[in-house]
Design a protein around this nucleic acid. Structure first.
Lengths: 203, 203
DNA sequence: ACCATAACACTAACGGTTAGGGTTTTGAAT
DNA sequence: ATTCAAAACCCTAACCGTTAGTGTTATGGT
């Protein structure tokens, strides 16, 4: 019961749709491609497409669940007694590096050019912040109020979003995380801010 | 040339549409009311409605420009030498009090119930954060990097958003602004954190 | 009195999305 | 091997927000 044929076929269909969509979007532009075009290119019915993706925008952010999981695992899966904020900083740095890579540039250029995609990404980020807040609040080694955990989660997501748009993304992550570290120290009873990397410097 | 008849009529039409929309939305629910219903109730053509409001969601957030102006004026219009963060805290407190008042409850219940409205509000908040960041960056009395000003602006908007949803909104504003104050002190060369409300565990 | 233009109206359409109702494929139980 | 329920898929037709195109009226300045 691990990998039935049904699940494999379903995943293949999903991927076929996502690939067709991305190809067309990059070729002709997001707005110039209709849902019916994508469905035809992937050789599926429109209703099938919408049974795999909740909206046209979701076709572009195919792997947002990976993103969400990486964030929460940076919290739940970190080494024992490892402080929270540096772990999050490392993860955000990796994510920013990943999505500012040259290979991802055309996709992000497309996203930045489309208000609909930007808006969708914003609401995705809010979902991610909420997941992150839940993970932080659930950590038995930390004792923070619900409000503080939600605030820190939002700040971390803000860091990602702002760094991605900054002239020097890596430096921006460093700069904003200095601020987050300070904000965190206010809420956290234990005063060990060990790991507060002052650095702005790159790799 | 201040109040010509034309401008008055235009404003009246706009208000007539907004009133009709809010009435129908609260009566029957946002999703159950179509644009054509609103236009009919306001006795205007659909195209006229869309020449006053950019989208269906914008009908609900009629006064979002006030919100934006209050934020930027809290920065640009504060007393000389008054520290930034406490001024912002006061403004956010007032805004939160305003939109958690009993009279506003039905509207916010409607917004919270509609994904489309929530998403629209999120993108509105991002616009507001951007305006706020511009105002902060333009303040000659402050010397902050663009990234830091954008980060602080987002944090402030986050405070508003989180406080509105918190069990005790006023307390949440206080709690988050302690964090913001600490984050601000990191970026700001002058160490005068005068106005840091309640107990801060300083570094 | 005249005219450029703002404000409004009407129709028809476009494009994302969904409901309704069908067919085929799959996994499992007999 | 047969049977069966559910999953995955397909098709058609529509709904609804939104816009283009085009025309009409009211307004304010000259």
């Amino acid at each position: 019961m691990p990998t039935g044929r049904r699940e494999r076929k379903k995943a293949a269909t999903r991927q076929k749709i996502a690939d067709a969509a991305l190809r067309l979007f990059l070729e002709r532009g997001y707005d110039a491609v209709g849902i019916r075009d994508v469905a035809a290119e992937a050789d599926v019915a429109v209703t099938t497409l919408f049974s795999h993706f909740a909206s046209k925008e979701a076709l572009v952010f195919e792997q947002d669940e990976d993103f969400e999981q990486r964030l929460t695992r940076a919290v739940t899966g970190r080494a024992a007694h490892e402080p929270l904020v540096p772990a999050l900083r490392r993860e955000i740095q990796a994510l920013v590096r990943h999505c500012t890579a040259d290979s991802a540039a055309p996709i992000w250029r497309m996203i930045d050019a489309s208000p609909a995609l930007r808006e969708y990404e914003e609401s995705m980020r809010l979902r991610h912040a909420e997941s992150l807040a839940t993970a932080i609040a659930a950590d038995p080694g930390l004792s923070v109020t619900p409000t503080a955990s939600r605030a820190i989660a939002r700040f971390v997501i803000d860091a990602y979003s702002l760094a991605r748009e900054a002239a020097d993304p890596q430096a921006a992550v460093g700069e904003i995380f200095q601020m987050i570290e300070a904000a965190w120290d206010v809420t956290c009873p234990s005063g060990d801010s060990a790991g507060t990397a002052t650095g702005t410097a790159g790799p």
